[in-house]
């Protein structure tokens, strides 16, 4: 099996890091890192929609904006927006906030592979920080598959590894119900065995991420509630 350049095992994540409320003026915000990939996300709302035609009479409308590290948003960012919107729609209990709008603004601050997974996690944490009601915990991971000479699955690839690989898959798993929330692949076509092992690997690492998130939130709440 080909070794990874940074010495990780094939099924090892880069050290995740999370920070709640780095931005004080948003209703909720979060920063999420996977190694050198970092994303900041802000959530505004539920608030009155800025445009009347966005108002839905029975639920909140969700707006996702992705801003690149430099330059103006292009097709890649638009695609990430559409994907994130579908993913978050599944998680947010939108019918608890009729006739409002929830805006999720994602700022990519450092890109070194697995960007969309990192953005998904940051968006989820920011929604959590804003106190938006959600029905599931959906964490995201990215996988890179290399078919030659033998199929290898690399979890949480860096940018260099993404360029070497044949297929990229970004998965989001709701760990408690063992449900796939989203699964978007690009590159080479894969067979049944590879798919099964990808989904299994993603499910396991999402559980790990969820445990990490619970632990760090618990720590944060303890320091919050400590007197003095």
């Amino acid at each position: 099996m080909a070794a990874r350049r940074d010495g990780r095992a094939a099924n090892q994540l880069r050290p995740p890091q999370m920070e709640l409320r780095p931005l004080l003026r948003a209703d909720g915000s979060a920063r999420f890192r996977f190694g050198d990939t970092a994303v900041v996300c802000a959530v505004f709302g539920p608030r009155e929609p800025r445009f009347r035609h966005r108002e839905l009479f029975d639920r909140a409308s969700l707006e996702v904006v992705v801003r690149p590290r430099i330059g103006i948003p292009g097709p890649k960012e638009r695609q990430m927006e559409a994907l994130l919107a579908r993913q978050l729609e599944h998680v947010i209990l939108a019918n608890q906030y009729p006739r409002t709008q929830i805006s999720v603004i994602v700022q990519l601050s450092c890109c070194d592979g697995a960007v969309s997974a990192c953005a998904g996690n940051a968006a989820f944490l920011a929604l959590l920080d804003a106190g938006v009601a959600m029905k599931a915990t959906a964490m995201c991971v990215a996988l890179a598959v290399k078919l030659e000479p033998e199929p290898v699955i690399w979890l949480d690839p860096t940018e260099a590894e993404e360029a070497q690989c044949d297929a990229l898959i970004s998965l989001s798993v709701d760990g408690s119900r063992n449900q796939l929330v989203s699964n978007v692949s690009s590159g080479a076509f894969l067979d049944a065995a590879t798919w099964a092992s990808c989904i299994e690997a993603a499910g396991k690492s999402c559980k790990v991420l969820e445990a990490f998130m619970r632990m760090s939130l618990q720590k944060r709440l303890e320091t919050f509630l400590k007197p003095g």
Binding site: L83, R86, Q87, E89, H90, V91, A136, A138, A167, S172, D174, Q179, L180, V181, S182, N183, V184, S185, S186, F189, L190, W195
Partner: peptide
């Protein structure tokens, strides 16, 4: 095959 699954 490739999979594009969205929306949970």
């Amino acid at each position: 095959w490739l999979v594009f699954h969205q929306g949970g």
